[in-house]
């Protein structure tokens, strides 16, 4: 499948990339790992005149800790996130999430920044960054700003990023003792995308839930926080029955998507089951 003709440019700095985006406006598209953009270009669903390849900008792929925050460069591949010792120790939710994205080829090329900026509702990272209350750092013509994950996903394939803004990094908190995390998904058998993916960050004590955050992707037009479940779990015992009752609210208040593989009814059901399982798994890890 052959995309429409386009110009290609590979800036070597963020500044240069931003200038190109400013100059070309809607006619330009940002290329990072290429695993979202290239398929839609090959189907000619996107026909940008200019592809701005940010993949050669140095220094955007690091993973580092500073105090209670871990910073992940936008160009860190899913594979790098999955294998990062720092993340595995201090924020295992992201490596667990990265490990089930697509297949090995996708994980070797796809980037965390690219995935978040594309905002596919069935991508795996959105639920995790929501559950982690991550911060997305973006740089644009007006300078650098920090967008809370909660405000980042606007609607399907649309984010809070301004046209000439680039994600430069993602900041996640260090997960402390007493908090367990988990990401479980039902993958589409063809695409590997999440039909339902549930990310949980849960602080437990004495067999009860002190606080939990649940991010869900794959279910609605955008990833969301399952606040009804979070509220229903707060201060409650973490036994299966209680968790199941709370998880029944996993799709409350959202417009559940349906497709050839899973109707909206079934997806809502899966959301509840996978939320229950993710919460119980996170609770079992909250040592």
């Amino acid at each position: 499948m052959i995309p429409a003709a386009f110009e290609y440019v590979a800036p070597t700095s963020v500044q240069e990339a931003i200038a190109l985006l400013q100059q070309h406006g809607d006619e330009a598209k940002v290329l990072a790992g290429g695993h979202s953009l290239l398929p839609i270009m090959k189907f000619r669903l996107a026909q940008p005149k200019l592809v701005v390849d940010i993949g050669r900008i140095p220094g955007l792929d690091g993973i580092a800790r500073s105090g209670d925050t871990i910073t992940i460069g936008a160009l860190a591949t899913h594979d790098a996130v999955e294998r990062s010792g720092l993340l595995r120790e201090h924020c295992p939710l992201l490596p667990e999430t990265a490990s089930v994205i697509g297949d090995m080829q996708v994980r070797n090329r796809g980037t965390i920044g690219g995935s978040l900026a594309h905002a596919d509702p069935a991508a795996d990272y959105p639920g995790a960054v929501l559950a982690l209350d991550a911060e997305i750092v973006a740089r644009g013509p007006g300078g650098t700003r920090t967008i809370p994950a909660r405000d980042f996903f606007v609607e399907m394939l649309t984010t809070a990023l301004q046209p000439a803004e680039l994600i430069t990094e993602v900041r996640v908190p260090v997960i402390g003792k007493g908090t367990g995390t988990a990401y479980v998904k039902h993958a589409h058998p063809a695409s590997g995308y999440a039909v339902v993916g549930v990310a949980v960050v849960l602080e437990a004590g004495g067999g009860t839930c002190r606080r939990c955050a649940i991010g869900i992707n794959g279910v609605a037009g955008k990833a969301y926080r399952a606040t009804a479940v979070e509220r229903a779990l707060a201060g409650r015992a973490l036994d299966e029955k209680t968790v199941a009752a709370a998880a029944a609210h996993a799709a409350d208040g959202v417009d559940v998507q349906g497709d050839l593989y899973a109707s909206s009814d079934f997806r809502a059901h899966l959301a509840s089951v996978y939320t229950k399982r993710a919460v119980l798994l996170a609770a079992s890890r909250a040592g």
Binding site: P39, D103, H188, P189, A190, S191, Y193, L260
Partner: peptide
Amino acid sequence: LLTGSMADYAVPRAHM
């Protein structure tokens, strides 16, 4: 054709 690509039509893979 609703299953017009490998993203919609489930071609089996070894891990399954």
